[in-house]
Amino acid sequence: MSGTTDFNQFLIFVRVIQAGSLSEAARRLNLPKSTVSRKISELEERVGERLIQRTTRKLSLTEAGRVLFERVSPAMSDIEEAESAVAGMRGTPRGLLRVSAPMSSSTLGPIVAEYLVRHPDAAVEMVCSDRRVDLVEERFDVVIRAGALVDSSLVARNLGKAKSMLVVAPEYSRHHGVPKTPAELASHACVAFSGGVAPHVWPLESRGKRVEVRIRPRLTVNDMEIARDAALAGVGIACLPELFCADDVRAKRLLHLLVDWSFPEIPVHALYPTRRHLSPKVVAFVDLLAQRIQLGNN
């Protein structure tokens, strides 16, 4: 046996035996009888054995045909069951969804929980890491990334832009005062997030003007929750995403500093491999992300 395998030959062979005649198999497969007959002949030529004894009244298997039918028939059934299972997944989100997200993604917790409650046949494996994962190689369904995109082959769904603000605890301000200009940040204790390119340099913008301030961190950490806790405890001035500290600012647990200055906004995207035959579990999750993540777009 050589050459490229034509699985249609095997499928038609099995269907002919199950139907009991070429004509009935052709009807069930919605194919011309001549096509069915040709495929059987091609398969016999391929394996080098006669598989079916044809008479005007009935078909019967040769010894070689019986062996082939017993081996191929279960495989065809498995393929059909697999096809049915995959087709069933098109309508309802189901199965395991593998998601990669940055460290300190606690804001995604309620969204993941809502997704699982909405779709009881779905499960989520969420891996939080600031390492740039290979979506295809590592078999992730969705990757959430902040920053400039470099994977041009992936489909990107824009989730908005992440904004950050300078905050400090009232306790710190009472003892050390607060900066009135960006330059004064250099003389204050700060909490730096080490996930960036230059964690000890803070770029600030205001009305087209940009400055870079080299800070003096008392704490450098790659977890945003720890950075927030340190700021609340009065360790120093922190740069935190609005999503992490907006409630604390509203409750006056943290004070918003230098309100006329802002950090460059960071684009956030959900990435997935292709739009073609996109699984419902991916569609439902990405749609929910877009609805629930409240990121500025200005």
Rank of each mutant, 00 (worst) to 15 (best):
L97Q: 04
R94A: 15
P102C: 04
L29S: 05
S106K: 10
K39W: 03
R57C: 03
L59N: 00
Q18T: 08
I79Q: 07
T56I: 01
R94N: 11
R46M: 09
A113Q: 12
A113R: 10
S41H: 07
S104W: 11
I40Q: 06
I111Y: 03
E24R: 11
T107A: 14
V16F: 03
S105N: 09
V72Y: 11
E42L: 15
G48D: 09
F69P: 00
R71K: 14
L22A: 08
K39D: 02
T92V: 07
I79A: 13
T92P: 00
L29V: 05
A113I: 03
E49Y: 15
K39L: 10
V16W: 05
R38F: 03
M103H: 04
E81W: 11
G48E: 04
I17E: 02
V47E: 08
L96V: 05
V36L: 08
E80D: 14
V16E: 05
R71H: 14
V72F: 10
R66L: 02
V47I: 06
E63M: 03
P74C: 07
G48K: 07
L22W: 04
V16H: 09
Y115H: 09
V72P: 09
K39P: 03
G88C: 13
A85P: 06
M103D: 04
S41D: 07
S100L: 08
L22M: 11
E45D: 13
Y115E: 11
T107E: 15
S37N: 14
K58L: 01
V99H: 00
N30G: 02
D78F: 12
L29R: 01
E42I: 13
L68E: 02
G88T: 13
V72C: 12
A87E: 14
A85Q: 14
E80M: 15
N30E: 05
V112L: 13
R54H: 04
P74F: 10
R15V: 03
S84M: 12
I40W: 01
M103N: 07
A87W: 09
I52T: 01
M76N: 10
T92K: 03
A25T: 15
E42G: 10
P93F: 06
V36W: 03
L61A: 06
D78S: 13
G109W: 02
L116I: 10
T55R: 07
V67R: 09
R28T: 13
E49C: 12
D78T: 10
K33D: 05
V16D: 08
S21V: 08
R27T: 05
E81T: 12
R50V: 11
V86T: 15
E63W: 06
G48N: 12
